[in-house]
Design a protein around this nucleic acid. Structure first.
Length: 493
RNA sequence: GGCCCCUUCGUCUAGCGGUUCAGGACAUUGGCCUCUCACGCCGAAGAUCACGGGUUCGAAUCCCGUAGGGGUCACCA
């Protein structure tokens, strides 16, 4: 295979959404797999809608995901001269022509054709065969014109071999003479994109299936420009549960990469999830290290059919696709502690809960805490919400925990302080001695051990569930344990 | 409407003519474990492989129709 050069060409008209991210991911994986280059090219020719904020957001999103590129960002607008030169070349060679039809008359014609349910609603070729004299005449009269590509009028099919979908073909006669330069002299996407891909020596174009009809026309442009056609691979689209294309407009932030960053996702977990939406390695693996995924990736194993991003708005249990959360939770509980520790540090700092000693004296305690609580967390955010009691005294006790494990047994008002007394009397609290003490108290009181233990969990961690309480009695600072146990009184109001 | 693509459990998917009355993952659910929850482990339920015709000794797998879904038909990208 010649040098692999792929590109990710976002148009900066919004944030990076998961569909775009997935395109970037596949291109990135393919480049890495083949030792190729990934080029980032900002397609900003739509000056009306392009914004700097969008460019920043897209780059930030890619960087957060860990997708690095080898060249760029290039900006399409910087190559306007090349785009024009290509258009002029086609014009000079008779492969394109000026069209003086007005947009209004064209729109009217198309609407009439569609209303009449005619098979061909494209441009009718009115200006295709104007003589040079007629063209000169119209230009002299100051009539504005666009440049249209002269699609070969011949029988047969234009075709290309799609790496994902197989042979795609379409009759020449079904393709209209499309516009390549606006009346204001600015070339359009179809042409710019091809010219840029030629200049950037792009070998493989990996993009969404929504580009399929563009591809046939672009193949024609490559041929007219006398350039080799790159390999195309069209990946399936991501739809919502109603099978509608996901978009910022209709789905909001849930489809933005930024949303996942803000909601405690690990970049690699999101990437892993996204990669699996429309691709699989051919075996049962679903969790990959970076190296494993690069090694396993191939265009041939990209799925043909669209996939659904399974999220229900206002789902009380899952704020996004359950599988995405599951994968995130998996990484959360299996990644090296040192790695997750620094991410949690960021969360704590943001929440104003960071204690510098976690980096020095209490480092061991800090790491152990994370190790203990991360197992049942789903996102990084859980450390400062569900796990708040480990890092602060001003936590609130979960309602269910309070009702079920504390208020239900009024005698805990005396039992918990009693437990505190026994802990206080013990010189060294280990998980083993804590268990002995707690169970011993229950026995002496003639109650089930679960009652004081679960109540302790509620007042010490604020949660109805969590790590082994015996380990926690030993893990928490003794004074904290005693205080929280003795403070149980305040809960009965 | 034309053209193009797609169609296997709720969702992501495996499958590429026979060893599959369809396997895995997530979600759901029963149990074990247990101080709780989670993890882990063992189970359950869940897909007449969109439908209808062919081809074949044999089809989820090949062919043809039909239906459904998606994409696209801009002087947007």
């Amino acid at each position: 295979m010649p040098e692999v050069r792929v590109r990710f060409p976002p148009s900066p008209t919004g944030y990076l959404h998961i569909g775009g991210a997935r395109t970037a991911i596949y291109n990135w994986l393919f480049a890495k797999k083949h030792g190729g280059k990934l080029i980032l090219r900002i397609e900003d020719t739509d000056t009306e809608r392009s914004t700097q904020a969008s460019i920043d957001g897209i780059i930030e999103g890619l960087e957060w995901l860990g997708i690095d590129w080898d060249e760029g960002p290039y900006f399409q607008t910087e190559f306007a001269a090349e785009h024009c030169a290509a258009a002029n070349k086609l014009l000079a060679e008779g492969k394109a022509y000026k069209c003086f039809c007005t947009k209004e008359s064209l729109d009217a014609k198309r609407e009439a054709a569609m209303a009449a349910k005619q098979s061909f609603v494209g441009y009718d070729g009115t200006c295709r065969n104007l003589t040079p004299e007629q063209v000169a005449e119209k230009e002299a009269a100051g009539i504005p014109s666009v440049v249209r590509f002269k699609v070969p009028r011949r029988d047969g099919m234009v075709s290309y071999d799609d790496k994902v979908l197989g042979l795609i073909k379409r009759a020449y006669n079904d393709i209209e003479d499309f516009v390549i330069v606006r009346s204001n002299g600015k070339p359009l996407y179809l042409l710019c994109n091809v010219v840029d891909d030629i200049r950037d020596r792009i070998s493989h174009v990996i993009r969404g299936q929504d580009h399929m009809t563009n591809t046939l026309r672009q193949v024609l442009l490559y041929e007219a420009l006398g350039q080799p056609v790159p390999v195309f691979a069209h990946m399936p689209l991501t739809l919502d549960l109603n099978k509608a294309k996901i978009s910022k407009r209709s789905h909001g932030e849930i489809v933005a990469v930024q949303f996942y960053k803000q909601n405690g996702f690990l970049p690699w977990a999101l990437l892993n999830f996204l990669a699996l939406l429309g691709w699989n390695p051919g075996d049962d693996r679903e969790i990959f290290s970076r190296e494993e995924m690069i090694e396993a990736f191939s265009l041939e194993r990209i799925t043909k059919s669209n996939s659904i991003f399974n999220f229900k708005k206002d789902d009380p249990k899952f704020f996004t696709d359950p599988k995405a959360i599951n994968i995130n939770a998996h990484y959360l509980r299996t990644m090296p502690v040192a790695e997750i520790a620094s991410l949690v540090k960021g969360e704590l700092e943001e929440a104003g809960l960071w204690n510098p000693t976690y980096d020095s004296d209490k480092k061991e305690w800090y790491l152990k805490t994370i190790e203990m609580i991360r197992e049942r967390f789903h996102t990084l955010k859980d450390f400062t919400t569900l796990g708040r009691a480990f890092f602060a005294d001003d936590f609130t006790i979960d309602e269910a925990a309070l009702a079920k494990n504390v208020l239900k047994h009024p005698d805990l008002k005396t039992w918990l302080p009693l437990l505190a007394d026994r802990f206080e009397a013990a010189d060294d609290i280990t998980a083993e001695s804590a268990e002995e003490i707690a169970k011993g108290l229950a026995e002496d009181l003639g109650i089930k051990p679960g009652i004081p233990i679960n109540a302790a969990r509620a007042v010490i961690t604020g949660q109805i569930k969590g790590p082994s309480m015996f380990e926690l009695f030993a893990h928490f600072d003794k004074a904290t344990v005693l205080k929280r146990l003795r403070d149980v009184d305040r809960l009965y109001v």
